[in-house]
Simulated assay, not measured.
Amino acid sequence: MLRALLPEHLPRLAGQRVLVVGDAMLDRYWFGAVERISPEAPVPVVAVGGSEERLGGAANVARNVVALGGQARLLAVTGVDEAAARIDALLAETHIDAQLLRDPALPTTLKLRVLSRSQQLIRLDFEARPAAAALAQIEAAFADALDWAQVVVLSDYGKGTLGAASTLIERARAAARPVIVDPKGHDYERYRGATLLTPNRGEFATVAGPWAREDELHAKAADWLARLRVERLLVTRSEQGMTLFRAGAPALHDPARAREVFDVSGAGDTVVAALALAFAAELDDAAAVHLANLAAGIVVGKLGTATASVQEVAAELAKEDSACM
């Protein structure tokens, strides 16, 4: 178990500046009871009794940065519709400095989940890819925001906002800003030169191929680090914890903590937010990984896209100290 993260490290996260660029979305939840099956088709009838809305995607990364004590600036594209208005309101409530570029022809990405007794019954997605004009605005706005940022996060959910990811990475690295990428899809070449990639186990297997043994995973990680000229690769591995692979240095593994997993949605957002703040605060790799693992563990114990606070991380550290005594 990595023990490099100490309680005195946590105040160093306060006020660190993270620029988040990527696919912002609205997560909407409808809650209700199921007491019968529809006579029209063999599907449950949900009597909706409540609803909730939360920031999703890149907006949830920014939300997690703020929850952990940092400052977040969000750069994304939305439509001009009701979902965009709700994102605006939630960003204001969370004190996130956002520059949302509007594409009138674009439906704002919306994920609608219907749940009964904490079980998800169905998810409905509303989405489309931004127009070229909106993406050009992203590049222009990025140049202005880069001066403010200490660390850049590219949150890629495959919705099209990061079509120019390679250009953004080049500009950020030229300005000596670390770039953390939460990747999506099969084309990792466009992330070439990033500081850190954070695929989950399934995502990395999709691009690197499956592995049966630890040494095979290590070999694949080393290959992709060299191929993409990336400094670090963090593979999140669910019940196996997470492993940080580093160019020219030994890998670091942080095991998962035994806990009840309620919902894994949004946990990756928490991981990249925690890592970004750790980079900005100049914590070492071991402390950064441990922070990300603790924060993600807190979030999977909550329903839906959620955040971990500094206070909650401190409480987890205290539990670890007690267990070691």
Rank of each mutant, 00 (worst) to 15 (best):
W148E: 09
W148H: 06
W148I: 03
W148G: 13
A149T: 14
A149M: 02
A149V: 09
Q150I: 11
Q150N: 08
Q150L: 04
V151P: 09
V151A: 05
V151D: 10
V151Y: 12
V151L: 11
V151E: 04
V152N: 08
V152C: 05
V152S: 04
V153S: 06
L154A: 12
L154E: 10
L154T: 11
L154W: 03
S155V: 05
S155W: 04
S155C: 11
D156W: 05
D156E: 09
Y157A: 08
Y157T: 15
Y157F: 01
G158N: 14
G158L: 10
K159C: 13
G160P: 03
G160I: 01
T161C: 13
T161N: 03
T161F: 04
T161K: 02
L162Q: 05
L162N: 03
L162T: 10
L162I: 13
A164R: 02
A164D: 02
A164E: 06
A165P: 00
A165Y: 15
S166F: 13
S166V: 02
T167H: 14
T167D: 08
T167C: 14
T167S: 10
L168G: 03
L168A: 07
I169D: 00
I169G: 03
I169S: 13
E170H: 14
E170D: 15
R171K: 01
A172S: 09
A172K: 15
R173D: 02
R173H: 01
R173T: 03
A174D: 10
A174Q: 07
A174N: 01
A174H: 03
A175Q: 07
A175F: 06
A176P: 01
A176H: 15
R177V: 11
R177Y: 10
R177Q: 10
R177A: 04
P178A: 09
P178Q: 08
P178H: 02
P178Y: 10
P178E: 01
P178N: 14
P178S: 02
P178T: 10
V179A: 07
V179N: 04
V179D: 12
V179C: 08
V179E: 10
V179K: 15
I180C: 03
I180P: 14
V181Y: 14
D182H: 00
D182R: 00
P183F: 10
P183Y: 06
K184C: 15
G185L: 07
G185M: 04
H186R: 15
H186P: 11
H186I: 11
Y188V: 09
Y188M: 04
Y188T: 08
Y188P: 12
E189Q: 06
E189H: 07
E189T: 15
R190A: 10
R190F: 14
Y191I: 13
Y191Q: 05
Y191W: 02
R192C: 06
R192K: 11
R192P: 05
G193L: 03
G193W: 00
A194F: 02
A194R: 07
T195W: 05
T195A: 13
L196D: 01
L196Q: 02
L196T: 01
L196C: 01
L197I: 12
T198Y: 00
T198L: 08
P199Q: 13
P199K: 07
P199H: 08
P199Y: 13
N200I: 11
N200W: 02
R201H: 04
R201I: 01
R201N: 02
R201T: 15
G202K: 13
G202W: 11
G202V: 12
E203Y: 11
E203D: 12
F204G: 11
F204M: 02
F204P: 12
F204Q: 00
F204I: 13
A205W: 09
A205Q: 08
